Amino acid sequence: MRKNTEWILILLFAIIAQNALANGPSTLESQKKFPSACRMFILKHFPETEIAHIELENGFFQSKCYHVILTNGIDIHFRQSNGKWIQIKGKPGTIPEKIFPDHLIKYLEDFYPATRIVIATKEENRYRIKLNDETELAFDCYGNPAKDNF
């Protein structure tokens, strides 16, 4: 009888551990916990799109961030600390240009007219952009091309 109990406990522990690992980052139970700064960014730049999924991801060395997937496939990461976006991924033409400084968009129009942004990362004082032709570019916080481009 004791061996059966031990096996049942081991099996129960294994099931609980597997579920915890499979679920990964904690999924927000309600969009009410989602910061208003993030919600306002989405409403402003993606007014015709709804939120499909929100997770609060625990960074190992980084701070926590909200990972949001919109119904149009746009994937956005926001800093938990201040609600500012840190990365946006989407299909060509789905990331609004108004998110970026005018100089950055003008540079892309002048030198990469047939391309569209598919990934944008916003760091403290720079933008990193990946275009649909696999070109990767860096810009300062004002949208000017960075001298140490990748």
Rank of each mutant, 00 (worst) to 15 (best):
K64H: 08
C65W: 09
H45W: 14
G83I: 08
T71H: 13
D148R: 07
E55P: 07
Q80Y: 07
G93V: 07
M40G: 14
M1W: 02
Q87T: 11
Y66E: 05
E57H: 15
E97R: 10
F150I: 00
F150A: 12
E97D: 09
G73W: 11
W85D: 01
S26A: 04
E55Y: 04
F34M: 02
L108A: 06
E50L: 15
D75P: 14
R39M: 10
G93R: 07
D133A: 11
Y66R: 06
K3Q: 15
Y127E: 12
L137D: 03
E97K: 01
N4I: 15
L104C: 05
Y66N: 01
A52L: 15
E123N: 11
E124F: 08
T49W: 13
L108V: 08
N82I: 10
L12A: 09
I117M: 07
I8M: 13
Q18M: 13
I119L: 09
T5Y: 14
N149P: 12
Y142F: 13
T71Q: 11
C65E: 13
E50M: 15
R128I: 09
N149G: 01
K44Q: 12
L108Y: 03
Q62I: 13
K91C: 08
I51Y: 02
L104W: 02
F111T: 03
K122F: 02
D110C: 03
N19S: 01
N125E: 11
P113T: 04
A138K: 06
K84S: 13
A146R: 02
N82E: 11
N58S: 13
F46W: 10
E136W: 06
G59N: 01
R2V: 12
W7E: 14
A120I: 00
E29Y: 07
R128D: 07
I119N: 09
T94K: 09
P25Y: 08
P145V: 00
K89E: 12
K106V: 05
E136L: 07
K91N: 10
I117G: 01
E136S: 06
L137Q: 03
Q62N: 14
T115C: 13
A14G: 05
K3N: 14
F13M: 11
P92V: 08
P113E: 04
E124G: 07
W85I: 06
T121V: 09
R126M: 07
L131C: 05
D110Y: 01
H45K: 13
G24Y: 03
K64T: 05
Q31D: 08
L56D: 12
L56A: 10
F78Q: 07
Q80S: 14
N144G: 00
F60V: 05
K130Q: 10
I16L: 08
